[in-house]
């Protein structure tokens, strides 16, 4: 009974009491039986910092991130978030947990035909009933927050524009604002900079780092760009073929390690 109580209002669980922000234990996932994508992942997040996951394409980075908020269902292991095993929950409990996890996507995943401000407000839909959503009954506080967030990401002038009129970098800013709008306890970002030019990529990473620091929450960011990861992350997890092969300081990433993660060495010249 007490366990049921604990997730009805997750905000009541103070952060200091939970031992860690996120605990992943022996996580396994396969799409085709026998062909494991994640071969027993163990990650423990105890500090509110930016954590970059690097590794080649198809190594399970996206799958790992999507297992955390259960857009993908894991086949084995545990994911402990706020004293709850996320692998076991479903239905409304799952939806309530998802409210507390903001997600940023590579292709931004905005609702193209809605306005920018409506896209930001979308982050609150997990807290509202469908009837409220239908009547667009966002609270005044939410509307204020949304406009403040747009100011922070530098898109105040674009609030009423349609999302499909924005550039890639601007769309990703909206994507981040939407995730932050959820008031999340953890930020998940799946290749947030891979579709952007190098300058915009740095700006987007700065935003993510800022939000992580300001709200004191961890941000897990999947990346291709090792240099960018080393610049912004304070912890790097290297993945290769479904295993974690490195977990530690960005300075610990050596050429030998990169060869092991990505294979070959010609690309490094």
């Amino acid at each position: 009974m007490s366990k049921t109580k604990s997730y009805i209002d997750l905000k009541e669980v103070p952060m200091s009491k939970t031992k860690s922000y996120l605990e992943i234990k022996n996580l396994k996932k396969w799409y085709v039986p026998g062909d494991l994508i994640l071969k027993g992942i163990n990650i423990s997040i105890t500090k509110p910092e930016v954590i970059a996951i690097i590794g080649p394409s198809g190594t399970g980075k996206s799958t790992l991130l999507r297992c955390i908020n259960r857009l993908v269902d894991p086949n084995g292991g545990e994911i402990i978030f706020k004293d709850l095993d996320l692998c076991q929950i479903k239905g409304s409990t799952l939806r309530k947990v998802r409210r507390h996890m903001g997600m940023v996507f590579q292709e931004y995943n905005l609702v193209e035909r809605l306005s920018v401000i409506e896209n930001v407000l979308t982050g609150r839909l997990g807290y509202m009933t469908s009837w409220q959503a239908f009547r667009k009954k966002f609270s005044q506080k939410d509307i204020n927050t949304a406009y403040e967030l747009l100011k922070t990401v530098g898109l105040s002038d674009h609030a009423k524009k349609r999302a499909d009129s924005l550039s890639g970098g601007q769309r990703q800013r909206v994507g981040i604002a939407r995730a932050v709008m959820q008031n999340p306890d953890i930020l998940l970002a799946d290749e947030p900079t891979s579709s952007l030019d190098p300058k915009t990529a740095v700006e987007i990473m700065e935003l993510i780092t800022d939000f992580s620091k300001k709200n004191n929450i961890p941000a897990i960011v999947n990346m291709h760009d090792v240099k960018l990861a080393q610049r912004f992350a304070t912890r790097i997890i290297g993945m290769s073929e479904g295993y974690v092969v490195y977990d530690g300081e960005p300075s610990g990433i050596t050429d030998t390690l990169l060869k092991e993660i990505y294979g070959g060495e010609e690309w490094m010249e």
Binding site: R95, V97, R98, M101, M103, V111, R124, L125, G126
Partner: peptide, 9 residues
């Protein structure tokens, strides 16, 4: 997917 991730019903 993005809306599912926000916990929307």
């Amino acid at each position: 997917e993005a809306l599912r991730a926000t916990g929307a019903p």
